[in-house]
């Protein structure tokens, strides 16, 4: 079995804080000392300066705290799309708002959202990349 065959059909998350196993969800690095949460690789906590973190699950449902509808972006970025900031039970997450028409009549501040996954396509080795977004929960 070549490595290419072994990869075919496999999935990989767009970002390492997206967990695909089981029910897809996001995870954060939580500071053991002060509970500040981060999504990136950490050296130390920007809030309390300690350097110990644990991985915690982030709720998959939330509320839209801010958004914009991007109509002008770099070549290769499909527009329009809705970029937003979602309050997931106290943890703030950046993500696109998907499965909703990208206009201010359908995208509303405070709307209830839930995490969903999207396919980015399959690479040369047959691996599918999976991204995330938030869709209307109602």
């Amino acid at each position: 079995m070549t490595s290419e065959q072994s990869l075919a059909g496999r999935r990989i998350p767009l970002v390492d804080y997206l967990v695909l196993e089981g029910e897809p969800h996001l995870v954060a690095h939580e500071c053991v000392t002060c509970a500040a949460r981060y999504f990136d690789r950490r050296n130390a906590c920007a809030s309390c300066e300690q350097a110990e973190f644990r991985v915690v699950d982030v709720p998959t449902e939330g509320e839209l705290r801010a958004f914009t509808i991007v109509s002008f972006a770099a070549p290769g970025v499909p527009v329009p799309f809705v970029a937003g900031v979602v309050d997931c039970g106290g943890t703030t997450v950046r993500g696109n708002v998907v499965n909703v028409p990208p206009d201010p009549e359908h995208v509303r501040l405070g709307m209830k959202l839930r995490l969903t996954t999207t396919s980015l396509g399959t690479d040369a080795a047959g691996v599918e990349a999976i991204g995330y977004g938030f869709e209307p929960a109602a």
Binding site: I12, P13, L14, V15, V70, A73, A74, V77, P78, V79, F81, A83, G84, V85, R94, G95, N96, L120, A129, G131, Y132
Partner: peptide, 9 residues
């Protein structure tokens, strides 16, 4: 694994 602009906000 890919550019985030436009995919994650």
């Amino acid at each position: 694994v890919a550019a985030l602009d436009g995919r994650v906000g």
